[in-house]
């Protein structure tokens, strides 16, 4: 088996995560899509570390994890905050930045 398979798997997971971001309306699921993308990159990084024979890729993945943890904390806080005021966890409902006029 080729090590490349891991990279292909990472790409597949990444694409699925991206599609989830685009297709799901629940903010929490969207957020999980983002997490999936981060994890996919981590897998790729770990694989690359193995291919290159040094640990820098793993260190990078480690930092990604830490930052992802911080990101999750803030992101979920935002989701909860929005939910409190708008009674909705749909990303489509939080569209106050839209142009006032409806697009033609």
């Amino acid at each position: 088996m080729s090590v490349t398979n891991y990279v292909v798997l990472a790409a597949l997971l990444f694409s699925i995560g991206a599609s989830a971001v685009l297709l799901r309306r629940n903010a929490i699921i969207v957020f999980m899509g983002v997490e999936l993308m981060l994890n996919a990159t981590n897998l790729a990084l770990v694989t690359f570390a193995r291919i290159h024979g040094n640990l820098v890729g793993q260190v990078l993945a480690f930092f990604v994890m830490v930052v992802a943890a911080a990101e999750v904390v803030v992101g979920l806080a935002i989701i909860v905050s929005i939910y409190r005021t708008r009674r909705s966890a749909s990303v489509d409902d939080a569209n106050l930045l839209k142009d006032v006029r409806e697009p033609a």
Binding site: V21, L22, L23, R25, V30, V91, D92, A94, N95, L96, L97, K98, D99, R101, P103, A104
Partner: peptide, 10 residues
């Protein structure tokens, strides 16, 4: 340029 500014993050 305003057309794409739908406010929908998706």
């Amino acid at each position: 340029a305003r057309r794409p500014q739908t406010g929908f993050v998706r």
